[in-house]
């Protein structure tokens, strides 16, 4: 984890790596991310051959398969532009684990190079773009969940809240045990369903206890987990239903509302 990171000046172009979860379940978050970057005057390149960073196979122990898929991703970024991802988890995979995964392999140098250009979207908007944003939405109470990868692997625990602070009508409320994992963990959620359930139920309670109307997160895995549990419980009338959104969608929507 890099505690002091030097950020480059705002570039003319970036690559956007959408990630597979955004691709299939939260494409609006990807579009919002692209548009936020474009509004900063950056040309966004979306390589159509992108698929998945390889993390599911990697964390399941299938490193050969992870490497095969990751190797294909390494080829997507031929120019020396930054690579921006709307996910701390996938960014962590590419920045922290690609160099290990390809150590001693022909792609080692390329993996190091790609890793050095990886940025999580909110990190990029805050520290590289120094984004200014006008909040046009109604006053709202918002809770933020930062994924463990964003917080610990990428060292970005303060970034999401700092962006939300720029939103004039947003009151950020802090849930109890804010740094605790939501219990997703990819395949963990189905391999160890009871532990995962206990964790996500506690997380939902912590969030609904704050009275937040909305939850935002920079990671769709956590979002899918927490919102799925919230919706499940709300359908049974157990908790208040909270609106869930990727932070990129939230920022884009509220800065465009009329």
């Amino acid at each position: 984890m890099s505690s002091i990171k030097l950020y480059p000046p705002k570039p003319e172009k970036v690559y956007f790596y959408g990630t597979c979860l955004v691709d299939m379940f939260y494409p609006e978050a990807g579009m919002a991310g692209i548009q936020l970057l474009e509004r900063e005057g950056i040309e966004v390149i979306f390589p159509q051959d992108q698929t998945c960073c390889g993390q599911p196979a990697y964390t399941s122990g299938y490193h050969d398969q992870a490497r095969e898929v990751a190797a294909a991703q390494l080829k997507l970024f031929p120019q020396d532009y930054p690579i921006v991802l709307p996910s701390g988890s996938c960014a962590g995979m590419m920045r922290e684990h690609y160099p290990e995964l390809f150590a001693g392999q022909p792609e080692a140098a390329l993996a190091e190079n790609v890793a050095s250009r990886i940025y999580e979207l909110t990190e990029f908007l805050l520290h590289v773009c120094h984004m200014q944003i006008e909040d046009k939405g109604e006053p709202i109470k918002v809770a933020m969940h930062t994924s463990c990868s964003a917080r610990r692997e990428m060292g970005l625990g303060e970034v999401g809240p700092a962006l939300l602070k720029k939103m004039g009508n947003v009151e950020v409320v802090e849930q109890a045990r804010i740094k605790e994992c939501c219990g997703f963990g990819g395949a963990f959620s189905v391999r160890h369903p009871e532990i995962s359930e206990a964790m996500v139920n506690d997380k939902v309670k912590a969030i609904t206890d704050t009275g937040a109307q909305q939850l935002v997160s920079g990671d769709c895995g956590c979002l899918m987990n927490i919102m799925g549990a919230n919706e499940f419980q709300a359908q049974q009338g157990l908790v208040q239903e909270v609106k869930g959104e990727h932070i990129a969608s939230f920022l884009w929507r509220r800065s465009n509302e009329s």
């Binding site: 299939m24 494409p27 359930e197 799925g228 919706e231």
Partner: peptide, 17 residues
């Protein structure tokens, strides 16, 4: 068991881009 099923988006980010 404890969550609603994730909902696939009508079109992917690839398609939308």
């Amino acid at each position: 068991n404890c969550r609603t099923a994730p909902k696939l988006a009508a079109s992917t980010l690839h398609e939308q881009v």
